[in-house]
Design a protein around this nucleic acid. Sequence first.
DNA 1: TCTGCCATGTAAGTTGTTACATGATTAT
DNA 2: ATAATCATGTAACAACTTACATGGCAGA
Lengths: 182, 182
Amino acid sequence: MALAHAILAALVEAPCSGYDLAKRFNGSVDFFWSASHQQIYRELSKLENQGWISAETILQSGRPDKKLYKVTDLGEQELKEWIAQPCELAPMKEDLLVKIFAGHVAPKNVILQELERHQKAHLERLSTYKNLEQQYFQHPENLSESAQFQYLTLMNGISYEQSWLAWYEQAIALLSKTIEKI
Amino acid sequence: MALAHAILAALVEAPCSGYDLAKRFNGSVDFFWSASHQQIYRELSKLENQGWISAETILQSGRPDKKLYKVTDLGEQELKEWIAQPCELAPMKEDLLVKIFAGHVAPKNVILQELERHQKAHLERLSTYKNLEQQYFQHPENLSESAQFQYLTLMNGISYEQSWLAWYEQAIALLSKTIEKI
DNA sequence: TCTGCCATGTAAGTTGTTACATGATTAT
DNA sequence: ATAATCATGTAACAACTTACATGGCAGA
């Protein structure tokens, strides 16, 4: 049920189309949830049927019409109740760490290359996040309440990326050293 | 396909039963993958049919018989090839951050309680990880190659938990302050 | 006696992935 | 011309979750 609530959360903050939601939940700025556009469209239909969101069709000239979704009172109530229920820690699913765990069955330079690829990707994400921080959250003390909460999720994203980057440094150093020995 | 490879990775390091795998992929020591026992048993059957693992039935007195699984040469080859293929960054799915993102629709003390619950859970995990470090990885320079790789995954787990804990401090401080204002 | 551990599974339902499909507009 | 962006979806399949099911043994 969590995709439903992630969509509600995103729409409460800013009503938008499925296409826009897909952009927010894809690629580089998905610091709290990710989902494909197929999932999103399917879920949006469900949410509309349940009456948790409502759609307004916006006619556009020069580009396809779009449906602008917003959260209904019922939907907001539901979101509020969901927030109050305790939830589990997110399950770990890290392909990269599976590779590291079994790293001794593969050549070390293969592992190192993969580490460096991921390091680069995380570095890019971090810089995206820092740009967002600069643009929207320069003066944390003046933020609206909802902006404060959003800032907290961004801070989490930044902290997450930094923790990965610190680990890459250690991991690459350790593996490079043992390669030299051989 | 990643569950399959996570199982291969775990079995390469130490052959064991489905039950044991489930324990490793559940609860507090799953620092690179998590899965339920149902998933694991189903996947084990598939892997055995594909010839990537083989089972030996161990008759036990006083407790149920068990199947001890180990990775075949074919399975190890497959794992090796999978490691060499570049993979994506793990998708983000954090219920807690969804709650935070939409935090303004709920009472602040509800959010704070949930933050504190999670903080406690992460603290416990960190201490579990640190105990493992003390027990098995006291002298990193003397570790076997495979133990070195395992230590890297543990280090990642520790770094991950510490990053969450640092964020909780910030988040709780920020929210507590704004509560006082009201 | 009741709970928890050991050990394995099935069945039904939900969620997520991959591939396919359309069609206009804008920028290179 | 070609690719990218806007905008929405369907269909088939794979992965994951939740609930159900069994049964002996050990310890409080």
